[in-house]
Design a protein around this nucleic acid. Structure first.
Lengths: 211, 211
DNA sequence: CTCTGTGAACGACTTCACAGCA
DNA sequence: TGCTGTGAAGTCGTTCACAGAG
C-alpha cells in the first residue's frame, strides 16, 4: 500500500488526527486504539487505520497507537517538525487578525513579514510583524527563504498578488480571497472562503439535514 | 435525479459557483456555457452540469446558463436569498477581526451580537456590534431569532460554548476552535482549522506535488 | 483475547458519451 | 450546430472482515 500516494481526504484527516492526539497528550494519555480514537472524532476505526497505514506501520496489534511517537510521525509527514517561515499579503482587518493569532506559531508556522500597498499601513508593526510595501516582496521572500504565503487582499487584487508571489518563488498559498487563483503547476493553493462556510451551514440548516 | 439529495461535494461547489457567477455578473457577462464556466474554475463541464441538475433545470440547450437567474437560484438553494442573523462567541483577536469583516454582510449574513466572558470586553462595540456577557446568550438568540453562530473561543472552552449554543436553539455552528465539537443531531457544525490548512500546504509543498 | 494492517467488497462521486432541444 | 440533462461506465474512497502479531 505504501507505494502510491495517499488520497487527499486522508491527508486532510492527518491534521485532524494530529490535533486530537496533541489534546490526548496534554491529558496525559499515552496510547489509544483506533476504535477509541475514531469514536472521539466521530469517524470509523477502519478509516483511521487505513489513513495511517498509507504512511507506515505506527500501531501495535493488541495494544493500539502510542500517542507521543505518533504525534512525532504525523508532524514529520506533514512537514511541521521543522518551522516554516510564512508571509502575509494584505494587512486589512482580517490580515491583521491573523498576524495576532497565536495558533500558527504553536503549530510550526512563523509569520516573518506582512505586505500591503497602502502607504499608511507600511512601516507599522503588528504583533511583532513589520508591514512592508508590496514592492519589497521578492527581496524579503528570498532573505527569509519563505515558501508559504497567506493572501488576505480584496477579491479583485488576489490574482495579481498570486502571480507576484509565484514569481518570487512561493510554493504554497493560503487564499482567503473568494476567487479561484490561477497558479503555475508546482504551486499549491488552499482556498478558504469564510462566507462559503456560512452558506454551507445555511443550506444544511435550511434543508434540516441530520449530520 | 431530483428525488434524492445532492452529494455533499456538489453542495460545497455551489458556493464556489455562486462566487464566480457574481463575479461574471459584475463584469457584465449575461450567459455562460458549462464548459467556459468550468474552465474558469479548473473543473470539468460535466461536473458543473450534474451539480446544478440536482436542483433543477437551469440551462438552455444550445445557449448555456443565464448568469443573473442562476445567481438567484443558487441563493435560494443555499438559503441566502434571505438574510440570516448570526452571533459570534469569543471576542478575542480573531473574533474581532470577523466582526469587522465586511464579506459576511454582503453574502446575506448579519452579525447581530458578540459574546465573551471577559468583563473588560463586555459592553464594547466592535464595528457596530455590541459585545455581551455570555450569560445573555439565550436571551439575545431568542430576541433576534438567531440560528447560526460563529465560535472563536479558545480550544478548551469550545465544547462548553457549543453546548450552551445548542441549548439556546442554535442550529449551525461555524467552529474556528481546533476541536471536534459534539452536538445533538439536528445541529450542523462546520469546522475551520486555520493551522490545519497551513499544514496541508506544508505537506503538499514538502512532497512536491503538482495540482 | 485484543487490536493492527490490508485485500476484497461496496458505495459514492466523477467522467463519458449521447439523445434531444434550441 | 451548440449545448444541456442524464443514464451508463469508470474511478476513487470507505467499510468490511479477517489473518496474524502481541
Amino acid at each position: 500500500m505504501k507505494p502510491q500516494s495517499a488520497p487527499d481526504p486522508a491527508v486532510k484527516r492527518l491534521s485532524l488526527y494530529l490535533r486530537r492526539l496533541e489534546r490526548l497528550a496534554s491529558e496525559g494519555i499515552a496510547k489509544v486504539s483506533s476504535r477509541e480514537f475514531a469514536e472521539s472524532l466521530d469517524i470509523t476505526a477502519a478509516k483511521v487505520r487505513k489513513d495511517l497505514a498509507w504512511f507506515g506501520q505506527f500501531g501495535s496489534p493488541g495494544v493500539g497507537y502510542r500517542v507521543a511517537p505518533l504525534i512525532e510521525e504525523l508532524r514529520r509527514i506533514l512537514g511541521t517538525d521543522k518551522t516554516w517561515n510564512v508571509i502575509l499579503v494584505g494587512a486589512g482587518n482580517f490580515g491583521r487578525a491573523l498576524l495576532q493569532y497565536k495558533g500558527f506559531r504553536k503549530k510550526g508556522f512563523e509569520l516573518v513579514a506582512a505586505f500591503d500597498i497602502a502607504v499608511e499601513k507600511v512601516g507599522r508593526q503588528i504583533s511583532g510583524v513589520k508591514v512592508h510595501h508590496i514592492s519589497k516582496l521578492s527581496q524579503i521572500i528570498r532573505r527569509h527563504k519563505v515558501r508559504l504565503a497567506i493572501v488576505t487582499v480584496p477579491d479583485h487584487a488576489a490574482q495579481k498578488v498570486a502571480e507576484q508571489l509565484c514569481r518570487a518563488g512561493i510554493k504554497g498559498i493560503l487564499n482567503f480571497a473568494p476567487t479561484s487563483l490561477r497558479v503555475p503547476s508546482g504551486v499549491a493553493v488552499d482556498p478558504v472562503d469564510l462566507a462559503a462556510h456560512l452558506e454551507q451551514l445555511s443550506f444544511q440548516v435550511g434543508s434540516r439535514r441530520r449530520k
